[in-house]
């Protein structure tokens, strides 16, 4: 997943991926969801936001991983951006924890 962030806004976002229908649909939906959004709003995206937008609320433990994969990738990317570019260790650590707790 590639993000272009300018003036605290996501001005471009793309993903490449190969996988099951749920993972690909959720990644595609996520790119639409964050395009043009404020960086702060993107940071706040939750598991529920993804499942609400997908309209899938009864996924079992095996397939919920498919639905949340792209959010996990996004949060991991934000972690790198926050820690390396913005040197915001506190926010970076928080988002890293969120990413590892997604399942």
């Amino acid at each position: 997943m590639h993000l272009n962030i300018k003036d605290n806004k996501v001005v471009d976002v793309k993903f490449t991926g190969k996988g099951c229908a749920i993972s690909q649909a959720s990644a595609s939906m996520l790119t639409e969801l964050i395009m043009g959004k404020d960086f702060e709003a993107v940071k706040k995206l939750s598991k529920e936001d993804i499942l609400d937008n997908l309209g899938l609320h009864d996924l079992g433990p095996a397939r919920i991983k498919c639905a949340l994969l792209s959010l996990k990738v996004l949060k991991s990317g934000l972690y790198s951006y926050l820690s390396e570019k913005l040197k915001d260790t506190a926010s970076a650590d928080k988002i890293k924890e969120e990413a590892s707790g997604l399942y």
Binding site: G19, C20, A21, I22, C66
Partner: peptide, 8 residues
């Protein structure tokens, strides 16, 4: 067809 989709 991805195997996970087929299996589902």
């Amino acid at each position: 067809i991805h195997p996970h989709d087929l299996a589902t």
